[in-house]
């Protein structure tokens, strides 16, 4: 365990040093991250104004709070390794990773955390700007922050393990971009980032309840903006745990099959 911690510390340090070289990318990322919620809030606020102030219980200020919350949760939980994995396999970059004495998922996890630490000032700035520009209203209490934190950690674990498993498809397929793009679109809709889930058509909501995506973003975000009752909190946490177990099982199965298939090219 102590050894693993030392590995993480070193990985974090390396990743931070690496990414500090690309400071200009921070600005781009700032705009990309802020634009999505700004557009969504504008669209839905306009709808709320047209319809006499509120849509399904969301006022303009409520939409602003909701989309800022999903942005924050998405920032905390997102991963991007499934865009890189195919190159790793194709160009043999995977071989040295396999030779290391610990599982390659640890390095990716450390990278992911380092990136998020680095982006913390940016996301704070974006949050403040959006908060004031769109007059969001949110009342944070100790209780909902305490409920939010475990939900966020579980959401991160769930999303990380599922998306790492998705990335492993690169062992079987050479063209994964279309699959990744489809996955991203499904996540955008069913995790509540484009539209609050309660505004989606009923069949989609029913389907979404049986899928893992809403537990990755919408659930913690709704907790933060006070849209869930205590029983819903409990159901949500249990659903997250259940999906996490499913994710771990899928991951270990896919990994074992995939690694047997992998034949290094180049290196």
């Amino acid at each position: 365990m102590r050894q693993l911690l030392a590995v993480y510390r070193q990985q974090l340090k390396t990743a931070l040093a690496e990414q500090l070289q690309y400071r200009a990318a921070l600005i781009i990322w700032l705009i990309e991250v802020a634009l999505g919620p700004a557009v969504s809030v504008s669209v839905w606020s306009t709808v709320a104004r047209n319809e006499g102030g509120a849509v399904n219980g969301y006022s303009s200020a409520g939409f602003a709070a909701y989309f800022i919350a999903t942005m924050l949760v998405n920032y905390a939980t997102q991963t991007w390794v499934f865009w890189e994995f195919s190159r790793r396999v194709r160009e043999g970059e995977f071989s040295p990773l396999l030779l290391r004495p610990i599982h390659p998922i640890h390095a990716d996890l450390a990278d992911n955390l380092a990136y998020k630490i680095l982006m913390l000032p940016v996301i704070t700035l974006v949050t403040l700007i959006l908060f004031f520009a769109f007059h969001a209203s949110i009342a944070l209490t100790l209780a909902n922050v305490l409920a939010f934190l475990p939900a966020l950690v579980l959401a991160f674990a769930l999303r990380f393990i599922l998306e790492w498993t998705l990335a492993l498809l690169a062992f079987w397929l050479t063209q994964v971009n279309v699959i990744n793009q489809l996955y991203v679109v499904v996540v955008l809709f069913l995790s509540g980032q484009l539209v609050p889930l309660t505004l989606l058509p009923t069949p989609v909501q029913v389907a979404s309840a049986w899928l893992p995506f809403q537990w990755m973003v919408a659930f913690p975000a709704e907790l933060l903006v006070h849209r869930l009752s205590p029983p819903a909190l409990l159901t949500g946490l249990l659903a997250q745990l259940a999906w996490l177990l499913v994710g771990l099982a899928l991951f270990s199965l896919t990994w074992r099959l995939g690694i047997r298939r992998y034949t290094a090219v180049g290196g």
Partner: peptide
């Protein structure tokens, strides 16, 4: 299509 289930016209 989701947006227009909640409103007739957007601005």
């Amino acid at each position: 299509s989701v947006v227009f289930t909640y409103t007739q016209s957007l601005n």
